[in-house]
């Protein structure tokens, strides 16, 4: 049974308060609304096929062909699942059930435009490694931690030109913990949102961080890490930063004779590798 999660629930998030400040300079907006509308249309049309169910008991690589795909993966034993999805425009809906085991989940999408909606009902441990290196990509993760000792790690590295990342974790029961970590090098535009939700009476540990490095003069980024905590018994923190290259890193690399262009490449590679490290 697929948990009742509406994809991109956060679409209803109201941004109007942000624009209540007028400025002399032409107001600058990242066009989140536009991209979100696109997804909404996509959802309304619901052209995705029905979920096909796959039960996984050992390490598995799943190859998906064709633009639109819906997968329902059920994992009962410790395993690593790699999903490769190729097509010109790829849109993947993935639902994953984790039952008393540890699952490493890697989704690799290829195409000009890639969208992935992932929901995970976790009664074990889920580690999600996302690497968004496409020209244009969107990634929505919803993790529900449903049993005691359930834990999740969401690592997202973004090095694509345009990206919209929204990762969320919902601590349904006590004794759960989660980590959300995101590193990005942005050449054009990035919107990052993280959302931690801990309801009443639930004791949980949750950490979230997000580092964004802007590569070009006209790069733009928006970061909105949200904490939503009703419970008292929590240990919760988040941090986010937006900056250009770290000066000390630049100095160190330069002293080894690496030029600016190569530095960028090294940096992008390091982020990509970081995203794939367990």
């Amino acid at each position: 049974m697929i948990h009742d999660v509406k994809y991109g629930q956060g679409l209803s998030f109201d941004y109007s308060w942000i624009d209540s400040v007028e400025c002399d300079e032409a107001t600058y907006n990242v066009d989140t609304e536009h991209s979100e509308r696109m997804i909404e249309q996509d959802l309304l049309a619901d052209k995705h096929p029905l979920f096909s169910k796959i039960i996984v008991d050992s390490d598995k690589e799943i190859i998906v062909d064709g633009s639109l795909a819906s997968l329902h993966v059920v994992a009962n034993k410790d395993c690593t699942i790699i999903i490769r999805h190729t097509g010109k425009f790829t849109s993947l809906r993935l639902h994953c059930d984790v039952n008393q085991c540890t699952v490493n989940l890697v989704v690799i999408q290829k195409g000009e435009r890639c969208v992935q909606y992932k929901t995970v009902d976790c009664k074990g441990t889920i580690n999600i490694y996302d690497c968004l290196d496409q020209e244009w990509s969107q990634c929505y993760n919803d993790v529900n931690l449903l049993s005691e000792n359930a834990s999740s790690v969401q690592k997202t590295s973004t090095i694509g030109a345009y990206a919209n990342v929204y990762t969320r974790v919902y601590h349904h029961v006590s004794g759960t913990n989660s980590i959300m970590s995101s590193r990005s090098a942005v050449s054009n535009e990035l919107v990052y949102r993280g959302h931690i939700y801990i309801p009443e009476q639930v004791s949980a540990v949750s950490h979230q961080d997000c580092d964004i490095i802007l590569l070009n003069d006209d790069s733009k980024a928006v970061a909105l890490p949200i904490l939503d905590v009703t419970s008292q018994d929590v240990e919760c923190s988040h941090g986010a930063s937006i900056s250009t290259f770290d000066e000390t890193v630049v100095r160190y690399m330069s002293s080894r004779g690496v030029n600016q262009h190569a530095q960028k490449i090294l940096l992008i590679q390091s982020i990509k590798e970081w995203g794939m490290l367990p």
Binding site: Y28, V30, L214, D218, L224, V229, S237, H238, G239, I242
Partner: peptide, 29 residues
């Protein structure tokens, strides 16, 4: 947080210039 209090954090950062150092940190205890 004390006695069943509730807290929410919505820090919004919007940056259109690379030559910046913007950081945000939050804790709930």
């Amino acid at each position: 947080l004390m006695d069943g209090g509730q807290t929410k954090t919505y820090p919004y950062m919007q940056v259109a210039q690379k030559d910046v150092k913007v950081s945000h940190e939050a804790t709930v205890s």
